[in-house]
């Protein structure tokens, strides 16, 4: 249960086409992340799947059944919203029970499922509070609780962590991943944060301007980005792009080297440069190198504590097998 298939789906608002024809299959039990910069259409795509927006053409099937014209209430999908969208006038218990009440389950069954969900999500002590009395993280859990009680075919998450502070975000990320492992239900997760995408996804869908740029597992995208956009979007710090003569040496329009694939040497390297800003994180050290003559700034990531300072002149050695080559279309060259 929980296979979702989009065939030639398009969406236009007036004359503006936000989603050009798009095909995508989301496998049963898969954790799929839609990722892309803001305005790339990822949330719209999720809302199309949810049924909160009509598609302009094409077909959406859920578990083999045509769902294109099925209203959201009947698609057996649950959604967790960015703002959590809890019902402020209901207690946590009533919030979580709401989908069950709508499904007209009997009271005993409702109570049982709510208790179950609450214990999974550590909400048992808060069942009689109102959403307004909860912290951000707790509200997030209530929203998830409301989604899981109805045992949907798939979960849809719309940037669920963007309203939480950094520390909570890491915690909730883990909780959602664990939930997926335990429930083994299809999840579609929208985010603009590539770290969330890399850490949580079975499959990442990179979107730009409504187009799918690449679909693949996190490491596939990391190792073999299909084009410059994906190469730049996945991975942190961003991949260095080098044009011109240096790229021509590799018979490419542009070459890309990830910061962690450049070694720093004291003395002569393949490239030379001056340290601009050095960020010492302890576990890693990031250098922003100027004056290399091949790109304005190169970012380099060295493991551990490496003691170069602002103004030091250093040598850089890219790992030959980790140089990505792109043609003049920005597409990956084999």
């Amino acid at each position: 249960m929980g296979q979702i298939k989009l065939e030639k789906v398009t969406k236009s608002f007036g004359d503006v086409e936000v989603i050009p024809p798009l095909d995508l299959t989301i496998g049963e039990g898969e954790f799929t992340v839609f990722v892309g910069p803001s305005g790339c259409g990822k949330s719209t795509l999720l809302r199309l799947i949810a049924g909160l927006e009509d598609i302009s053409s094409g077909q959406i099937t859920i578990d083999g059944q045509d769902a294109t014209n099925v209203p959201p209430a009947k698609r057996r999908l649950a959604m967790v919203f960015q703002s959590y969208a809890l019902y402020p006038h209901m207690s946590v218990r009533k919030n979580i029970a709401f989908p069950l009440r709508m499904a007209k389950l009997d009271q005993a069954e409702q109570d049982k499922r709510v208790e179950q969900a609450a214990s999974v999500l550590n909400l048992t002590d808060y069942l009689d509070r109102r959403p307004g009395q909860l912290s951000g993280g707790q509200r997030q859990r209530v929203a998830i609780g409301r989604a899981i009680v109805r045992e949907p075919a798939a979960f849809l998450f719309d940037e669920p962590l963007s309203n939480l502070d950094a520390a909570l975000r890491v915690g909730m990320r883990l909780e959602i991943s664990e939930l997926h492992k335990r429930l083994a239900t299809t999840m579609i997760y929208v985010t603009h944060d590539q770290v969330e995408a890399m850490t949580m996804a079975d499959k990442i869908v990179v979107l730009r301007a409504g187009h799918i740029e690449q679909v693949g597992s996190p490491l596939e995208l990391y190792r073999t980005p299909r084009n410059l956009f994906v190469a730049g979007f996945i991975g942190s710090p961003k991949m260095n792009h080098i044009d011109g003569a240096e790229a021509a040496k590799h018979s490419a329009k542009t070459i890309g080297v990830r910061p962690e694939h450049i070694d720093v040497v004291d003395g002569e390297g393949v490239w030379q440069g001056t340290v601009g800003v050095a960020e010492h994180l302890g576990s890693d050290t990031f250098f922003h190198i100027h004056g290399t003559g091949i790109a304005e700034t190169l970012t380099v990531r060295a493991t551990g504590e490496v003691d170069f300072r602002h103004g030091d002149r250093i040598g850089l050695v890219p790992r030959a097998d980790q140089i990505h080559r792109f043609d003049d279309q920005g597409l990956r060259m084999p």
Binding site: F13, G51, L52, E53, D54, P71, P72
Partner: peptide, 8 residues
């Protein structure tokens, strides 16, 4: 922003 359904 809504569906045909909710518009009608």
């Amino acid at each position: 922003m809504a569906t045909q359904h909710s518009r009608s």
